[in-house]
Amino acid sequence: MNRLSDKRALPGKLSAPQIAILIFLPIAAAAVALCAGRMAISVSDVIKVFGNHLGFEFEVSKFTDSAVWNNRLPRIILSILVGGGLSVAGCAFQGVFANPLATPDTLGAASGSSFGAALAILCGFGLPGIQSLALFFGISAVAVTHLCSKGKGLSGTVLAGIMIGSLFSSLISLVKFVADTDSQLPAITYWLMGSLSSASYRSLIIGAPIIIISVLLLFLLRWRMNLLPLSDDEAKSSGTNIRVLRAVTVICASAITASCVSMCGQVGWVGLLVPHMCRMRFGNNYLSLIPSSICVGSTFMILVDTLARSATAAEIPVSIITAIIGAPFFIYLLKRSDFSA
C-alpha cells in the first residue's frame, strides 16, 4: 500500500499513462472524424490537405480540400470547444451547488442563450447576429438569476435559476408562436435541437476565445475547486475566499455555456454525462476531474458530431444522438461502478 501511495505522490492526480491516454483520445477521434463522413476521405488525402495548407504542394482535388479544411476541421474544433467546455461547466456547477444533478443550464444560461438565438432568427439576423444576441441573453439570464437570489443562499440561487430558465423557455415558445411557419419556425426548431453544421472559422472567432479563457481559468483553479462543496465556515477556515471562488466558477461556467449555445444551439446531456463518466473512472477530485472532462468531453462530442453528419443523408440534431447514446451508456456505468456523488 505504501508503494502505491508513493507512486501517486499527490492523491487525486492523474498518472502518466492516464494523461497519455486522455490526450490521445481526442486526437484519435479527430483523425477519424477528418476521414469519415458522407464522403469517405483517405488518410493520405487528409495528410495532403494539411500539407498544402502548411505550404507544401500536393495534388488534391479542390472538393476534398474544401471538405477537410473548410468543413470538417472547423466542426472538429467546435466539437472540441463545445464538448470540453460544456463538460467543464457541468463539473463546475456540480461543485458549486454540491449537487450531482446540476447542469450547465442550472442558472438559466442555456435557456437565455437559446432565447437570444431564437429572437435573432425571428428578426432575420445572420450568424454573427444570432451569436451575439445568444451570448448577450445567456449572460443576462445568469445576471438576473444572481440579482433575484442575492443573499438567499445556494438553494435560493438554484430555485431562481430554474424560474429564470422556465421564463426564457416560455419566451422561446412565444417567439416560435409568432414566427413565420414556413422558414423561421423550422430554423428556430433545428437551432434548438443543436447542430454543429454552422461551424466556420468566422463563427469560431467570436465564440472560441470566451470558451478557451474560461476553461483555462477553471483548469488553473482545479485543485482549489475541491473546496467548493464545503460549508462556508469550513471553506473560510481553510483561508480561501469562498465567495470569490464561487463567483469566478459560476461566471466562467456560465460564459462557456452561453458561448456554446450561441455557436451550436442546445446540446443537451454532455454537461451531465461526461463529468459523471469521469467521476466514476477518475474519482471526484477536481485535480483529475477537470482535465479528464475536457478530454473525454471533446472526444465524445467529436464522435457524436461525426455520427450526426454521416449516419444519414440529412443531419441528425446532436442533442438526439447525445441522449440516445448517452443515456444507455450512462446507465451501464451506473450499474457497474460504486456510484457515490
Binding site: G12, E234, S238, G239, S340
Partner: peptide, 16 residues
C-alpha cells in the same frame, strides 16, 4: 460534506 473524497484528499485540503 466531503463524502466523495478520500481521507488523504480531505486532509490535503487543509493545506490550502
Amino acid at each position: 460534506s466531503l463524502s466523495t473524497f478520500t481521507v488523504e484528499e480531505t486532509v490535503l485540503l487543509g493545506r490550502s
